[in-house]
Amino acid sequence: MAITDKIYVKNHRQLASQLETSFPKGAFKGATLDVLFQGEGLAKLDEASRERVLEFAEDFMDCDCQASPHCGCPERKFTRYLLELREQGLGPDAIVDVMGDDYMLYAYPGDVLSFLDDSVRTLEAVEALADVDGRGDVADQARQKRDELV
């Protein structure tokens, strides 16, 4: 299961009440993206919530894909965001706090830890395969990225 399947909308009930509709708690569920990011829904949100939703849309949903926002770009961008927070030295608890402050999203720190651990293991595998294939440049890049996450 992808980490983005374990990212949830903070204050879900409050937002559903303001929008006068129901939607899934999962931030990257299709119905959530549709409800929160259509123009008519935004107007119903209080100012603070609207600000966070707009920031999320600007940072993760800005792409030229025809299938946007259901193209996978928001999930890939959010995954990069989590990795960048880790590269800045933040641990799982701090990452959860930052994404809550930035975008009104939450996750369980254990899920974030598992994602980070999986990322390190994947980079280790890339490094080993690149070494076997004689691709020292790729191995070096994977090693550098892994070191930034550890």
Rank of each mutant, 00 (worst) to 15 (best):
E75Q: 15
A142Q: 12
M1W: 05
L82N: 02
D97S: 07
L116F: 03
Q66Y: 11
Y8G: 00
L83T: 01
V132A: 13
L90N: 02
E127G: 05
G30F: 03
C73T: 08
A27N: 04
E87I: 01
D102F: 06
N11D: 15
F56P: 00
Y108E: 13
Q18G: 00
K145W: 09
D34Q: 09
E75F: 01
Y108M: 12
I95P: 11
K44T: 01
E124N: 05
F78L: 09
L83F: 00
F37V: 03
E87P: 01
F60S: 01
L149K: 04
R80W: 08
Y103Q: 07
D140Q: 14
T122C: 14
R135T: 00
P69V: 02
E148Q: 12
A142W: 11
A31L: 13
A31E: 15
S114Q: 15
G100W: 03
E51L: 13
A31V: 07
M61E: 14
L54M: 10
A2M: 11
V126R: 15
G110M: 13
M99R: 09
T32H: 07
L123Q: 10
V98D: 05
L129G: 04
E127V: 06
D101R: 15
D118N: 14
A67I: 03
L129C: 04
L123N: 11
F37I: 06
M104P: 00
A2H: 11
S22P: 01
D133Q: 10
M1L: 12
P92D: 07
E75Y: 02
V96Q: 14
M99L: 15
D101P: 02
L129Q: 10
V120P: 04
S68H: 07
C63S: 06
Y108C: 04
S119G: 05
P109Q: 11
H70G: 00
Q144N: 05
R52E: 13
L83W: 03
E58P: 06
E58H: 14
D147N: 13
T32E: 14
S49W: 06
A125P: 04
K25V: 03
P74R: 12
D64T: 03
R80E: 12
I95H: 11
K44A: 08
Q18Y: 04
V96P: 04
V126C: 12
L36S: 02
R50G: 00
T32I: 13
R86H: 01
V53K: 14
K77G: 02
S22H: 08
D46A: 11
V35S: 08
P69I: 06
L15T: 04
C73S: 08
Y81L: 13
A107V: 05
D34Y: 05
D59F: 07
D5I: 04
H70V: 04
D101N: 11
F23Y: 07
H12F: 06
S68M: 10
D97W: 05
